[in-house]
Design a protein around this nucleic acid. Structure first.
Lengths: 229, 229
DNA sequence: GTCTATAGTGCGATAGAC
DNA sequence: GTCTATCGCACTATAGAC
């Protein structure tokens, strides 16, 4: 799957998740017509992500959000009951997309080495499409309440577990040679995170997502002394 | 040098930098007696780091800082002219310590492989001692003005350049086999950053700084196929 | 050199008109 | 379903007592 095909697929998945979130938050959302609600929710989410990436969620006032989204203060409060709830909804939206796409793209592959490659590539494509969300989620994770914080930690560990499983499978089948699957998975994740956290650095150096994916795969395969395919 | 020796040395270096900052900011600081000023500045800096690590610099109000530090609002404003300036002073303090210690610990080593090991270990020790500062600096980097942001970027790139230089030297001497020193240095940096950004993860898994240093060195040496010493 | 008191601003949130 | 107007509060920053 090319990056453009991936992007199209992720966008469709995203819209579905937005509808799900509307349906599940009907008690907080005063709007009844789904078409109107989903359109405005999408606007609110993307504007919040844009502003938060510029100056942080705490620093973004709801007046900023009102101005940039074109919705009045009153209208905004038809979609959430507090600024904190808005943050929680956005976090949930991204976590679901991450889980859905990773499972769908990686789950069915049999060979451990191919699985590792697909997981790295899918994660990078995902963070490329959802760059603002990942950066937001990463940076705002400590500003949320304990319940939401726990969800963020679980989501992070679940992604890491996927890499641990792949590495252990490859190790047990003699395809990889490595001593510590947990730390190795953690190192892979650190490299994947760098792609969206230090985006300015890679952009400045004119490194494309496919180039970076190639590098990470090569670097990891070299470290775990993966047998040539 | 053991971690405890390193810690003692870093603390002394830190106090000196605090004095330097006092002397350089005499126009903003109303206090005239150096002994009093440095004691209070140290208190203000460490309290700010503590509170910011809990909930972020923006979210921390100066009332919070006043309460936790034991200094009144008025007293606080004798040490800086605005909240923004306080942030800038703290950023400067950490950048200097990073630069001083890395140069001092790594500069004099001749062998590229030993240099790589020392650089990784020193950086991890440094972030361990200055954990709160590094996390703070990492998280608040986008909430500062353009001038300060540029300084943060330069500091980050300078550290990365140190790794690029080591890798290129090792490559040209046939000690390392790698295709892309820039991306490799960037990957090393990502792993080093993970140590202080995702501290909860390593703490939960009971991984010590020396264990992590050993893993990173092994992982990187394996990836660059470093010849055994 | 440090305090308390307060000025002035902008925030999150809501009520009620349309 | 969306708007404008406004409330009460917490913030940064400062002035003046001690």
């Amino acid at each position: 799957m090319t990056f453009n095909e991936f992007k199209k697929m992720a966008m469709i998945s995203m819209e579905e998740i937005c509808s799900d979130i509307f349906r599940e938050n009907k008690k907080s959302i005063k709007i009844k017509k789904e078409a109107v609600a989903v359109r405005n929710l999408t606007n609110i989410f993307s504007t919040t992500l844009k502003l938060s990436n510029e100056k942080g969620f705490q620093t973004m006032s709801l007046r900023d959000l009102s101005r940039s989204s074109g919705l009045s203060m009153g209208a905004l409060y038809s979609y959430f009951t507090s600024k904190e709830e808005l943050l929680a909804m956005i976090q949930e939206q991204g976590r679901r997309l991450t889980r859905n796409i990773l499972t769908q793209q990686v789950g069915h592959i049999a060979d451990a080495k191919e699985k590792l490659r697909a997981a790295v590539r899918t994660h990078l494509y995902l963070t490329e499409v959802m760059q603002e969300w990942f950066y937001f989620s990463y940076m705002e994770a400590k500003n949320i309440d304990k319940v939401e914080q726990k969800k963020a930690i679980e989501s992070e560990l679940a992604t890491e577990q996927m890499f641990i499983d792949i590495l252990e499978e490859g190790k047990s089948k003699g395809m990889f040679s490595l001593s510590d699957p947990v730390l190795t998975a953690s190192a892979i994740k650190a490299m994947l995170q760098d792609w969206y956290v230090k985006r300015w650095k890679y952009h400045r150096r004119r490194i494309s997502v496919d180039q970076y994916a190639g590098f990470v795969i090569g670097f990891v395969e070299s470290a775990v002394r993966a047998v040539k395919a």
